[in-house]
Design a protein around this nucleic acid. Structure first.
Lengths: 236, 236
DNA sequence: GCAAAAGTGTTCCCCATACACCCATGT
DNA sequence: ACATGGGTGTATGGGGAACACTTTTGC
């Protein structure tokens, strides 16, 4: 039995994939090799299959491109303007993924002609993908101000200056390192390693790693990572 | 031209409609008069039409039931388990609406057999609608702790005790009225009227109304309406 | 020995909380 | 006059922000 007289619609999933390279936020895009909008860049996307949920579809699509599993990903919003895809009426469910660029580098699937773009310098994209990215940036800023979500972008071992640079770059602000250190360590989410990272200084900065259990346990707690910032608007 | 070899899917819109009657939070449900799941209650829903966006569909569907325009409504999340609707594969985009019960009372469309339920005492619902409602409650608590969203549930004129009761009920807590008053008034979102509401006391409580312009301007600012509350988890 | 980044403590101020009494009015 | 809910001020403490010098080590 079916519902009669109703329109069935194509459902796409598009993944907005963020990374951080130590200095800048990056977005992973693929070059579209076919019409329409050949030459323009595109989010990694695909269509919802009959036997999978949207979350499963998003995981599948992300994995096709990056080879990664166990990536932080969440549903953002559906884009549904009737004419957003000129080929056919399609609605697109946008997912946001945060990945550690290092891991991706190792597992890249090159057949998609993917490329990282710094988010201040994005190319023309197809359809409404630019709008999706704008919303994702806004939400990331909104959410990261209150939840320790940016850890998803970090490698397993990272330094406090590295972490601080992520916040400073995301909010385009300078943060006092003493206050930042105190605030971050007071969450007890970080575990100090003995090892140091000497790539950025002669003295070297201690590595930390995330206390995974505590992180998951306390993820929802509202933190206050960013001082005095006008937290950007969000439709959430 | 069309995309070939892809599955088209039915797209539903379901509206989670909250109200507040001065004491309790309410949810507006309709009784399903047809199989499957006859007798159970349901969110107000409908299917996405070919020429409308999801936002438009949600507004249309809400209007059919309540007759209301200009209602606060936002997209929550898509529910997409392959077997969520036994009739046919359907994905459902859940929208959350906040309405002033008084206004609704005047404009109710009775042909849907709609009824308000207090949210502590909800009936069995069809499909995954209970899950949708749970998520909506969680998000409302999450968002209302930081944004002045609950004003959407209030009539044009309301009193401070009325407003306080909304917060106390939502978070199941007692709030000190002096601190609450100070905090709320410090937002400058409220305009005091000369008139008093005498329905709840002999002395009467002053009416306030919302400064609409300021409200829209500052909606995104992160406030801090709820003291010492464990803000409930949210997938946002 | 010097340049360049990492690490570390203290003071102050503001804001959030806790707390109790008087006011207005209908009965 | 009294009961009921409405309205108001103050004192205290904690946490966020501002702020500068020492340490390490590769060159």
């Amino acid at each position: 039995m079916k519902y009669s007289n109703q329109t069935r619609i194509l459902v796409a999933v598009d993944c907005i994939i963020f990374g951080f390279d130590g200095t800048d936020y990056k977005l992973l895009l693929i070059q579209r090799g076919f019409a329409p909008e050949k030459e323009k860049w595109s989010l990694m996307g695909g269509f919802l299959a009959p036997d999978e949920s949207l979350d499963e579809a998003a995981i599948r699509i992300l994995n096709q491109l990056t080879g990664l599993h166990d990536v932080y990903m969440e549903q953002m919003q559906v884009f549904s303007k009737p004419d957003r895809d000129p080929v056919e009426r399609t609605i697109a469910v946008a997912y946001v993924a945060l990945i550690d660029i290092q891991k991706y580098m190792q597992q890249l699937n090159d057949s998609f002609h993917a490329k990282w773009f710094t988010i201040q310098n994005l190319p023309k994209m197809i359809f409404d993908h630019e709008e999706m990215v704008e919303m994702a940036k806004t939400r990331l800023r909104y959410k990261a101000a209150m939840h320790p979500i940016l850890f998803e972008l970090l490698p397993d071992k990272f330094t406090l200056p590295h972490l601080q640079a992520m916040y400073e770059s995301l909010y385009d602000t300078k943060i006092d390192k003493r206050n930042f250190t105190r605030k971050v360590l007071s969450t007890n989410l970080l575990i100090k390693e003995d090892e140091k990272d000497k790539t950025n200084s002669k003295k070297g900065a201690f590595f930390y790693r995330l206390d995974k259990d505590k992180y998951e346990e306390e993820f929802q707690n509202v933190q206050n990572f960013i001082p005095r910032i006008e937290i950007p608007s969000s439709s959430e």
